[in-house]
């Protein structure tokens, strides 16, 4: 009995010390890790959307896999002249060892402009090949011709899976599809926001308001967020006029623009 108390006390003390050390570690490192991640993300955003100088955040309401409402944060990229270049977002599909954080850049017409893997916990040497040969090949396919089917070949898509890492490859493709879906569902808001910051002419046909046609019924109600969910925060760049007044009063008029003619979201 005495022994039990003795050993129990020892374990308690050791665990308490460990807990304190971990709390201290977290306190010291958490802000720095957050800052590091922010810098890396900043760099990644510029990489996946070449030419973008300024980013504007837009929160979109969407649904997660289980059908629950969720918020996705998108960055709208503009070049120095304020021209809308596309969107950047982080998608986190579930891979073999945990979520794979992918920074995905999409052009206004829905094509993939760039992809970068931010972090992953895939098996070294197998799943981690996502960031090596796989990514180059993926970009080649994604940029070459569309519509691209973002599924691995085994599932009838256009993407070569990594040998011995099919789960990772599938997860990656799913992340890309999710990202494309979010942008498609949020087209209206994205276009409003893209048009707001500057009076610059909009590039391409994709950003001109498109006649509403019966789009492939995209999920239930929470998909199109009500206008007030647009954050009224002004864009990061002080030069451009705050977009809030332009955006706020407009209801998200047409229920949905026709899905971008990409093979992805099916």
């Amino acid at each position: 009995m005495n022994d039990l108390i003795q050993t129990g006390k020892y374990l308690l003390i050791i665990s308490a010390i460990a807990g304190l050390l971990l709390a201290f570690t977290e306190m010291v490192t958490a802000p720095r890790i957050a800052e590091n991640n922010r810098l890396v993300l900043e760099k990644a955003r510029r990489e996946v959307l070449p030419g973008a100088e300024r980013f504007d955040t837009l929160d979109l309401a969407t649904t997660d896999d289980a059908g629950h409402p969720a918020t996705r944060s998108l960055s709208l990229g503009f070049d120095a002249q304020g021209k809308f270049l596309g969107t950047v977002q982080t998608v986190s599909p579930k891979g073999y060892g945990g979520p794979i954080d992918i920074v995905l850049g999409l052009k206004p017409d829905g094509a993939v402009s760039g992809v970068k893997i931010q972090s992953m916990r895939e098996t070294p040497g197998l799943g981690t090949k996502l960031a090596e040969g796989f990514l180059d090949k993926f970009l080649e396919v994604a940029r070459a011709g569309h519509p691209v089917k973002f599924f691995v070949k085994k599932d009838g898509g256009d993407i070569d899976a990594i040998t011995a890492a099919t789960i990772s490859s599938r997860a990656f493709c799913k992340g890309i599809r999710d990202g494309i879906k979010v942008v498609q569902e949020g087209q209206t808001l994205i276009q409003q926001r893209a048009a707001a910051p500057g009076a610059t002419p909009l590039p391409g046909p994709a950003t001109t308001p498109v006649a509403p046609s019966p789009a492939p019924a995209p999920a239930p109600a929470p998909v199109v967020p009500p206008a007030p969910s647009v954050p009224p925060a002004p864009p990061a760049d002080p030069e451009s006029p705050p977009p809030a007044p332009t955006v706020a009063p407009e209801p998200p008029a047409p229920p949905l623009p026709p899905a971008i003619p990409q093979g992805g979201g099916q």
């Binding site: 022994d3 003795q6 050993t7 020892y10 374990l11 050791i14 665990s15 460990a18 050390l21 971990l22 570690t25 977290e26 010291v28 490192t29 958490a30 720095r32 890790i33 590091n36």
Partner: peptide, 27 residues
């Protein structure tokens, strides 16, 4: 104490690895 050395080692090692991981990520 000899009886509980394994749990103690596991706590020590887990703490140490976590700290290294965090400090590496931060600095």
């Amino acid at each position: 104490p000899d009886k509980i050395r394994i749990p103690v080692y596991i706590v020590v090692i887990a703490t140490f690895v976590t700290m290294i991981d965090k400090f590496m990520a931060a600095f």
